[in-house]
Design a protein around this nucleic acid. Structure first.
Lengths: 146, 146
DNA sequence: ATAATAATGAAATTGATTATCATTATCATA
DNA sequence: TATGATAATGATAATCAATTTCATTATTAT
């Protein structure tokens, strides 16, 4: 079994809340961890079906919420009107750059922006919890093929 | 009739697209312009009902899309799972700071952040079109009453 | 005034997500 | 390792915002 750390975190979270590490949850965790980048429910549903075709969509929704609550996953709102998840444990914080034509997603991190966000929050007397920042543009490839 | 500028912009946009400035559209524009801050469809629906109780929700949805397309309105995703609009014509660009407890929304503008966003896009060879940036935190008032 | 066409409102539809509920699985305890 | 209390599951129904459909009405160029 790979992803020992993540499994332990999930187990702990479940135990703390009197929940069980069931087979479907194990499968969903594995599929989630093995998927690169951003993923939608439907993609996870298709992939879990390969492993166990009995796992239903509702269970995916439920399990993904648990993964977010346990700190392993993060929900992004990159896609309009759809939930979208990505790994967060063991990965550095980053924001996103989305090509509005081909939908390609790139990640970036800008420490100065983060610092200014902190300062802005302080100036408004807010205790900063998190932020969403997404830049929308046209990538080089799409720019050339216009 | 107030908001001569805005009305002219809307009229132009409609004319350019072979669409008509109808009474419902006029009413919706007025209600939209007279509403401060951020508004949801339901709020606009209630307010237009005061002026003309026959205007339906579908017409509000359709008109708001036109207002966005004409550059008078902007759609924000501050509220999960719901459309949210605000005036954009004649107002300065700004981003948002949302209190996660009382849902209060404050506006801010940070030129340095904007500049770094530009630089980041350039570095990734993206032609920047727009961005979403929202900071989530707890406002002073909510912090005290915890 | 009158065609040609656009817009409307009511109702139906969509599509993602959540809730329900009977059944099944899990696990601490005996 | 059996048992019973409880949690989880999957199928299905329900929800809810948003969109589409469509017969009717309004608009505008002529």
């Amino acid at each position: 079994m790979e992803y020992v750390q993540e499994l332990k975190i999930f187990e702990n979270y479940l135990a703390e809340n009197n929940m069980h590490l069931t087979r479907p949850r194990k499968v969903i965790l594995q599929v989630f961890l093995q998927t690169e980048g951003h993923m939608e429910i439907e993609e996870l549903f298709e992939k879990t079906k390969m492993v166990d075709k009995n796992i239903g969509r509702a269970t995916i929704y439920r399990a993904m919420n648990l993964l977010v609550e346990s700190g392993l996953a993060q929900e992004n709102s990159l896609i309009e009107d759809k939930k979208c998840f990505e790994r967060v444990y063991g990965r550095k914080h980053h924001d996103h750059l989305v090509c509005t034509r081909c939908k390609k997603i790139e990640e970036f991190h800008h420490p100065m922006i983060e610092r200014f966000q902190e300062k802005t929050a302080k100036k408004h007397q807010f205790t900063l919890i998190s932020h969403h920042m997404t830049l929308f543009g046209v990538c080089q490839n799409c720019n050339c093929n216009m």
